[in-house]
Design a protein around this nucleic acid. Structure first.
Length: 350
DNA sequence: CGTCCACGTCTAC
DNA sequence: TAGACCTGGACGG
């Protein structure tokens, strides 16, 4: 599922399917999950959700005053007031590479459902946090992670200011494609979004981030234009930071689930929407963190050296070394090089 | 069978 | 700046 749009779509999904649903009992964790137990229990409670960048917060709200029905157990529970009432609880989730929420209707739980909230009805259904790879995390009594910036989708103005006010930060020494994955400034942007955003403006992915962003600080005014012309111009020529908002918003407005592994009409529409990421004919490279960046055109000045570039620079050094040696040294060095070549050829045959 | 790849953090040297 | 953390799908032999 999971870049900013998928997290936001998950919160919409939860608020839609859980509207009017009453949940009951304990929150159940799978055996295999290493995430914390959720010690919440209520005879009747509601679930709602909000999102911020690549995080989602669930709020569990007990419906009415209720006595703790299981004295002794209550001591283990969290968020109990002194008279044993279950207090509301916030849970903050990150989705890792494969997290999602699903309301399961059948008797069977979905595979990899690591946290389950059961409805009161009979037979009950279960809202499940499903996560195949288990990179996802949740925190009990969670708050938004402190070092993540404002949401690129829901807090656009704050997001923009946070970037432009902090351009001296060393995060912007990096290539723009790597800076875009820094959640301290671009909370919600992930690997497919960075490719799509840079592609729209044909910005070379390995151009220095500060160079790209400093150009946006004082945006050129054209005072002779009418207001409506200015608005039109701005809408038709969005800058990089505007696209960090607008591109994920396009995914949200498509509806569906966004990027999702299961084949469906939504998935087909999403693939159709992609202009660059994994699109045939586009180029790709690995960035400094080993993540694949998709792009078109020039990679830009900070591009990592490819393998053949490394080999050719090594060869240059060897040749320079040989030139610098006398005739005797040259023959000794060449013997050594030939030995290295024979050895590596022999190893390749093994 | 095996190897590579995937929408993202985390922590430890 | 590597790895660790995971499952499973695609593709090659």
């Amino acid at each position: 599922m999971p870049e900013g749009p998928e997290l936001h779509l998950a919160s919409c999904y939860i608020n839609t399917v859980c509207a009017g649903l009453i949940f009951s009992g304990k929150v159940e964790k799978s055996e295999v999950s290493k995430n914390p137990e959720v010690l919440f229990e209520s005879d009747a409670y509601l679930i709602s959700a909000t999102s911020r960048g690549k995080e989602i917060k669930l709020t569990l709200t007990p419906l009415k005053e209720e006595k703790n029905l299981l004295p002794g157990r209550g001591r283990d529970r969290e968020g109990l007031s002194q008279n044993g009432l279950q207090q509301p609880m916030d849970l903050v989730f990150r989705f890792g590479m494969s997290g999602s929420f699903k309301l399961a209707s059948g008797a069977e739980l979905p595979k990899h459902a690591h946290l389950r909230f059961y409805t009161k009805e009979s037979p009950h259904r279960a809202l499940c946090f499903v996560d195949i790879r288990r990179f996802g995390r949740w925190e009990v009594h969670g708050t938004w992670q402190l070092d993540r910036g404002p949401c690129v989708m829901l807090e656009y103005e704050k997001f923009r200011e946070n970037v432009l006010r902090n351009l001296s930060d060393k995060a912007f020494n990096k290539p723009i494609c790597e800076a875009l994955l820094n959640q301290k400034f671009f909370n919600g942007i992930g690997n497919y979004l960075r490719a799509e955003i840079l592609y729209r403006l044909k910005i070379p992915p390995f151009e220095k981030a500060r160079t790209v962003l400093e150009a946006l600080q004082h945006r050129k005014q054209s005072p002779d234009l009418t207001l409506s012309k200015k608005v039109k111009l701005k809408r038709e020529n969005p800058d990089l930071l505007e696209l960090c908002h607008a591109v994920p918003m396009e995914v949200i407005h498509m509806g569906g689930k966004g990027y999702s592994p299961e084949p469906s009409d939504d998935a087909a529409a999403f693939e159709e929407w992609l202009q660059c990421y994994c699109v045939p004919g586009m180029r790709s490279l690995h960035d400094g963190n080993g993540r694949t960046i998709w792009f078109q055109g020039e990679p830009g000045p900070m591009a990592p050296k490819g393998e053949h570039q490394l080999y050719s620079s090594m060869l240059c050094r060897v040749l320079l070394l040989l030139v610098g040696l006398g005739e005797a040294g040259r023959s000794v060095a060449c013997c050594g090089i030939i030995k290295v070549k024979e050895t590596s050829d022999a190893l390749l045959k093994l």
